[in-house]
């Protein structure tokens, strides 16, 4: 916990190894709870997709697959730059660490900006659940408007919760960049970078599932 430059080991740990192993295990347990947190939403998705397949297909077909795919690429690249950032910290490359962290931050922000325009588009077309919601589907006449509204409710909650995690991740990246700027990281002190990386990759994984489940249902129509 304490990171004065002369002693990296907190008082209650015996050695740096024990401290690092504890940190890694703790982070994985935290991610375990994150899995279950998003898992509740995926369970809701599963139940309703089973109940209302047509509405799900109708709602999904109406999402912008180009922007969705673009954002998927953006997140995958950001995972690569994050991994490279960890590698830079591990091998003591200070400047490239800052560059990779900045790149990750820029990519993450790009994702959020694109997401914002997707939301705005939905708002303009009255696809945001609420009193003014309206939806007409050419391909799926069996899809009831109310059920499509349910799809959009879930869409906004799932992507919104994911975006919230991205914002937190971006905050963590800014914190890391400041620390890296001050030269706080090196081959023996990179746990903060590594653990933030875990978190960033986890958020990427959530999107890896959200993308096909939300954007790619029955595209062949």
């Amino acid at each position: 916990m304490s990171h004065s430059s002369d002693s990296l080991v907190a008082h209650h740990f015996e050695d740096i190894e024990q401290q690092n192993e504890s940190a890694v295990l703790g982070m994985w347990l935290f991610l375990g709870q994150e899995i279950m947190f998003f898992g509740g939403l995926f369970a809701v998705y599963l139940v309703y997709r089973f109940k209302y397949p047509d509405a799900w297909a109708a709602g999904s077909t109406d999402l912008d697959i180009t922007l969705g795919t673009f954002n998927t690429v953006v997140l995958l690249v950001s995972s690569l730059t994050m991994a490279m950032g960890v590698w830079s910290a591990q091998t003591g490359r200070q400047k490239s660490l800052i560059r990779y962290l900045l790149a990750t931050l820029v990519l993450g922000s790009t994702f959020l900006v694109v997401k914002f325009f997707e939301y705005k588009h939905k708002w303009d077309y009255h696809h945001v659940p609420g009193p003014s919601f309206s939806f007409q589907s050419e391909h799926f006449p069996n899809a009831a408007e109310s059920n499509v509204q349910l799809f959009y409710t879930l869409y906004f909650i799932m992507t919104g919760m994911h975006a919230l995690h991205m914002v937190i991740g971006a905050g963590l990246l800014i914190w890391l960049i400041v620390l890296a700027w001050k030269g706080k990281f090196g081959p023996h002190n990179f746990m903060k970078v590594e653990l933030t990386g875990f978190y960033w990759h986890f958020v990427d994984i959530v999107w890896v599932f959200l993308f096909p489940l939300l954007y790619l249902i029955n595209r062949h129509h």
Partner: peptide, 11 residues
């Protein structure tokens, strides 16, 4: 929000 996941009027 007034609309949500468990709202019977949306199914």
């Amino acid at each position: 929000w007034g609309k949500g996941i468990f709202d019977p009027s949306l199914g």
